[in-house]
Design a binder for these strands. Sequence first.
DNA 1: TGCAAATCTTAGCCTACACTAAGTTTTGGA
DNA 2: TCCAAAACTTAGTGTAGGCTAAGATTTGCA
Lengths: 148, 148
Amino acid sequence: MPTRRPDPARCLPSAEAQASRFARQREADRAATAEDYVELIADLIREEKEARAVVIARRMGVSQATVTATVARLQRDGLVETQPYRGLFLTEAGQQMAAAARARHELLVRFLIALGLDAETAEQDAEGLEHHVSDKALAVFGKFLEGR
Amino acid sequence: MPTRRPDPARCLPSAEAQASRFARQREADRAATAEDYVELIADLIREEKEARAVVIARRMGVSQATVTATVARLQRDGLVETQPYRGLFLTEAGQQMAAAARARHELLVRFLIALGLDAETAEQDAEGLEHHVSDKALAVFGKFLEGR
DNA sequence: TGCAAATCTTAGCCTACACTAAGTTTTGGA
DNA sequence: TCCAAAACTTAGTGTAGGCTAAGATTTGCA
Ligand SMILES: [Mn+2]
Ligand SMILES: [Mn+2]
Ligand SMILES: [Mn+2]
Ligand SMILES: [Mn+2]
């Protein structure tokens, strides 16, 4: 009987490796709200010329007070600038984050649809997956799309 | 010049549709910690006969105090039972959640690797993606795996 | 042009999930 | 057997991201 290597799927990773995966996850979680906001702000500016807090509240499904608080954090973090009653604006950093978020979002949606998922589910899933997919995985998805 | 339908990718979804996607996302986010804990607890029980809080702290990369607090919530939510100095146990509901989490996790890893991603990145990404992938998407991934 | 409605802010509250520091309890080995 | 180390809990703190209710400011239209 040959000594068989344990099935990797049935074998725990080292504590350190696992801990660092979870730590990276927590990182991504913390960044997710910022990404969704700047992506939405960029979309609104492109499609409707301005990004008003009311509209963001409506589209995020959240109260206006929550938007005020969240935007204050985004401003503190140098992603957004505000002029009350005049909408929100993205800083350079905010525009870069928005562009990256949009690219990830759209690639994911195209990938999921190419695999046979319906459009609405693809959009729904992409909204969450986009924050947890690595650049390496995105590259692999892109390659899949190219190869039909 | 034919009237052309707007490119869906360049067109905002309705406020209601978008809000409900984000709401679903927030749901998934809230469930993620519980899923990771019960999955880990199940793995530890299977691989090491018991799931001690210390070990969970080490593997989650988190303090023991954090584990105490989180486990209290899991217990409150009927997923886990505890006997101090004797490890953690899963309730029926906890076992079901763990099994589902494990299945999603493993399918995702196999899928990512099949697409050409390296194993470590696949594991890293799966740890986050697993909480945001719908059953429909998983079904599609499974089909892809079957078709080689 | 003036005021009602829309927009935005403030105040006060809550939960989840992190942390450190300082206990308490259990266990196992000399 | 007993005591030091390991395991666990408690207390106190902080931030993110939600909420409602109430107040302030601006806008637009009658
Ligand atoms: Mn998103
Ligand atoms: Mn998005
Ligand atoms: Mn996970
Ligand atoms: Mn997992």
